[in-house]
């Protein structure tokens, strides 16, 4: 018991939680934007892979780190656009299209990687984002090492939470996105384009998802590995429901998951001899299912989620 308390009080635990939460923050924000507009994007897992691969490869080919981030976002936006065309004007099943995008995007990423690097056993490393060492702030006790030793991408994620919240709640665009996810007819009757809003939301949301992937290869690690996304996209889909489609709660959910994961790693080293490691690997997922069950009861689904809308049919 003391062990757990020690872990919870350590700076490294909280720093790790935030680090682990970062890609989830990107992903859950992206999924949230898509779903607020009424479209489920199950392409998220594949878009994570694409973002991870493209960002890293761009840097390896000579782009700057921020250039890599941009490439990752554009690649994510491309697959988002594909999903958007299939599900919005064509109105195909969002589940099928999303899963298709995930399989397609993942395979294309692996294929590109193998074509570019046919004979390597371990991928070339890049120089990743370094922790931002902010003078004074970094020297604060506790907070200093938790908050102010994260990389720029973590800061970007936190900034995006505020930005997405602001756009959704304080701008005309946000109102329109929420409306199109609730009742597309309301948007259509007022002269706005349902297709435009939905496609735009999916493209932007997918770009954010890709940033989550890029964080993995450009900040958390320094190279691209097969299977490195490892279900993070699916976790985000669950976290959106946990967050009840609200950016603030999305941040909370991602941090909670990050904390579970960080705890799991530390528990493994503490009592790993007694319990098989796989049990600990399960912990964050089991806990998120439990959290989800509790949160989902009061979740406020966008009413038009999963329902295609066709112009001229009412």
């Amino acid at each position: 018991m003391m062990d757990i308390l020690n872990i919870l009080l350590s700076e490294s635990f909280w720093a790790a939680s935030l680090r682990i939460a970062t890609p989830l923050i990107f992903g859950v924000l992206g999924a949230l934007i898509c779903e607020r507009a009424g479209v489920l994007n199950l392409g998220i897992e594949g878009i994570f892979v694409v973002g991870a691969m493209c960002g890293w490869m761009a840097v390896w080919l000579g782009a700057g780190l921020w250039g890599g981030v941009l490439v990752a976002a554009l690649a994510g936006a491309f697959f988002g656009l594909l999903h958007a065309i299939l599900t919005v004007p064509l109105g195909l099943s969002q589940h099928v299209s999303g899963l298709g995008i995930t399989l397609f995007a993942t395979s294309v990423s692996y294929y590109t990687y193998r074509t570019a690097l046919p004979n390597v056993s371990s991928p070339p490393r890049i120089e990743p984002f370094q922790p931002l060492d902010l003078p004074v702030l970094s020297d604060l006790p506790f907070l200093g090492s938790v908050l102010f030793q994260q990389t720029a991408l973590t800061w970007l994620a936190l900034l995006l939470v505020a930005l997405v919240w602001y756009v959704l709640n304080r701008t005309a665009l946000g109102v329109a996105i929420k409306a199109v996810g609730d009742n597309p007819d309301s948007v259509d009757a007022q002269g706005l384009s349902v297709y435009g809003l939905r496609i735009g939301a999916i493209v932007v949301g997918s770009a954010l998802m890709a940033l989550g992937g890029a964080f993995l290869t450009m900040s958390a690690f320094d190279a691209f590995f097969f299977g490195m996304v490892n279900g993070r996209g699916w976790v985000c889909i669950a976290l959106v429901i946990f967050a009840s489609w609200r950016p603030g709660k999305a941040l909370l959910g991602a941090l909670l998951f990050g904390a579970f994961d960080a705890l799991q790693v530390r528990l493994q080293t503490e009592v790993g001899a007694l319990v098989p490691g796989q049990v600990f690997l399960m912990v964050p997922y089991v806990l998120s299912i439990i959290a989800l069950v509790i949160a989902a009861r009061s979740a406020d689904y966008p009413r038009a989620l999963l329902t295609p809308w066709f112009k001229g049919q009412r």
Binding site: T171, A172, V175, K178, A179, D182, V187, D188, Q190, L192
Partner: peptide, 24 residues
């Protein structure tokens, strides 16, 4: 043709404001 998750004011002004402005 009303969106139920936004206020009456938002429903009424929906579409009559520039979408890409950061302020309303």
């Amino acid at each position: 043709t009303l969106a139920e998750n936004i206020s009456a004011l938002d429903n009424i002004t929906l579409g009559s404001e520039p979408l890409l402005s950061l302020r309303r």
